[in-house]
Design a protein around this nucleic acid. Structure first.
Lengths: 340, 340
DNA sequence: CTGTTAGCGCCTTCAC
DNA sequence: GTGAAGGCGCTAACAG
């Protein structure tokens, strides 16, 4: 007796078809079905056709969990980022997601929300579910990161370089150098760097800034941001007011900070860019065209990072572990505001 | 003979501990370990302590794949969105991600890139890997969506309402109504709606716009956007130039479009907001403070959507299937540009 | 060329 | 209270 043959439109898969169902329908064994579906072994055309036909009819889809358990691989990568609302990381997700999909990998996304403790937990969870991780904007200490990176679950970092770990970064130092020279070329005498948290990216940008200032015989000033959001930008401007001379150019760690900086300057009736130039580092993004940028190729970092990771998962151990991508300075249309 | 006892710092888990290892180390059976770890059954404190100690020492972590295979549930949800670079969906990801984490669920993210065919494939893939899906900005036809929604993998939609499916939306009609009234109150005589794609959100916004215009005895004008990005905004302004009278207010389907609109107006030497008011629908976002908004609670849509979905996965079938959340109109600081 | 067999690691009834 | 046994769906040796 055959199983119920419901009309196709009502055949809601109450009970999913398994590989056994397909095997039975095609009159072969389960392993044969497996071989055909995975292309592990070529079979006579007639057999293959029968099998594919059964697959189609039953709407069979192999269970990823069962397959993972059996093979030890999940065809999924984990993506841990600092904060999805930060456009830099949004772009990274875009890039990594596209490459992952092209290679048939699923993406497990985790937003660390700038919290190292939470980040570590997320990493551990994702490692158990995926074949490898892409870490963008990690705030973990170096050795903790190294400890997490093992052959059973490789980690590729974005925007951070540890000797033993594969990484993808932008030419941050060069970007900072060019950006600094730009504002000077436009007339700034006291470009000031509003620095981010003390990780790789910020160190490189600081280097580039300092080098540029030295070349131009200008006295460097680096002021750390209290936080990486609009408020942080706002606060640092207020803090700078306490100092004897206000800078004539502010180089912001990122675009969100720049928005806070601009808002604060406005409130002080300082004109941007006439009194103070404001520039920033940031991704290409239609929302940010009004700010002059050292343009970080964030989306590319994501796609290349995913690519590197997937290559490693396929056993291709690339010679070049640290990929660096070029940046460029893009002029913005500064906005002089009038309250609405 | 005992297995190699490596010093802790070198004990990189080359071979992951399984439940059997824990059982052996604790001197109990595997099922006992399982019971204790899942809290399925209470055991004598001494036993439990021995087991937990073994777990700690071995760094044991249950395999999610094996567990999924065995239980038929993955403790993961899928999140399919229209485009991660669109700040509305970025916020949804933020909200959904937080709630998922709080409930111990992993998130599989898929960016449909505005392509229905790709969307459908992604949905199928994710359904096999997750317990349920959150769909934000789906472009699939109604019946296709309904066909995908089954008890074995429930789907919650965000920003779209089908009778049989659970959904989470914003009060779009009301938002459009208020926004339209606002621009009129500020003096506009010919507010024009730049419409998005013909799905639920746009229909509701159109309704609200039309109702408001009628109440104010103003002739409604609805112009469809060719695309939902900066270019789309740009193009529609150019197209409007062909018409006899240019509108004195443009209500944009979203903020990205508004940026294109503003850029185009600038190029035509039209002043914003003196000659033309530009307002838009959009999420709360520091990058968008300069545009007057009907503020869509995108992040809340994400978190409430995830919450609804997870409740359903826990067997709680809520009475209210369609949750609607309030919006509000927030003034922006418009930016009058000077080219840099 | 095809099928049989033996796990992958975990959960869950059911005896003891 | 605890353990033995079976099964989740699939893959991969190994036979035939």
């Amino acid at each position: 007796m055959l199983p119920d043959q419901l009309p196709e439109n009502l055949m809601s898969p109450i009970k999913k078809a398994t590989i056994s169902d397909v095997a039975q329908a095609a009159g072969v064994s389960r392993s044969t079905v497996s071989k055909v579906m995975n292309g592990t072994q070529k079979l006579p055309d007639t057999t293959e056709k029968r099998i594919w036909e059964a697959v189609r009819q039953l709407g069979y889809q192999a269970s990823p969990h069962a397959r993972s358990l059996s093979t030890g691989r999940s065809r999924a990568i984990g993506l841990v980022i600092l904060d999805i609302l930060n456009p830099h990381f949004t772009s990274i997700v875009k890039g990594a997601g596209r490459v992952a999909r092209e290679h048939g990998y699923a993406v497990l996304l985790a937003d660390a929300e700038e919290d190292p403790a939470q980040e570590e937990e997320l990493i551990r969870t994702l490692q158990a579910r995926t074949d490898g991780l892409l870490l963008a904007g990690s705030r973990l200490p170096d050795d903790q990161l190294r400890a997490l990176h093992g052959p059973s679950s490789p980690i590729v970092t974005v925007g951070r370089v540890l000797p033993e770990m594969p990484a993808v970064v932008a030419a941050e130092a060069q970007a900072a150098h060019e950006l600094t020279c730009s504002v000077a070329r436009w007339g700034a005498k006291s470009p000031t760097y509003l620095a981010g948290p003390p990780f790789w990216v910020n160190e490189r940008r600081t280097e580039g800034y300092l080098a540029a200032m030295q070349e131009m015989r200008l006295p460097p000033v680096v002021v750390p941001l209290s936080r990486l959001d609009v408020t942080g930008g706002w606060e640092v401007v207020k803090a700078l007011m306490e100092r004897p001379r206000f800078p004539d150019a502010l180089i912001c760690y990122n675009d969100i900070v720049a928005l806070g900086v601009i808002a604060a300057l406005r409130e002080m009736d300082l004109s941007v860019p006439n009194d103070v130039q404001v520039v920033a580092f940031g991704p290409e993004n239609p929302l940010l065209t009004h700010i002059t940028h050292a343009q970080i190729p964030s989306q590319q970092l994501g796609s290349e990072g995913a690519d590197l990771l997937i290559q490693m998962l396929n056993g291709v151990y690339p010679k070049i572990f640290c990929l660096e991508f070029p940046t460029l300075v893009r002029l913005g249309t500064t906005s002089v505001s009038t309250s609405f």
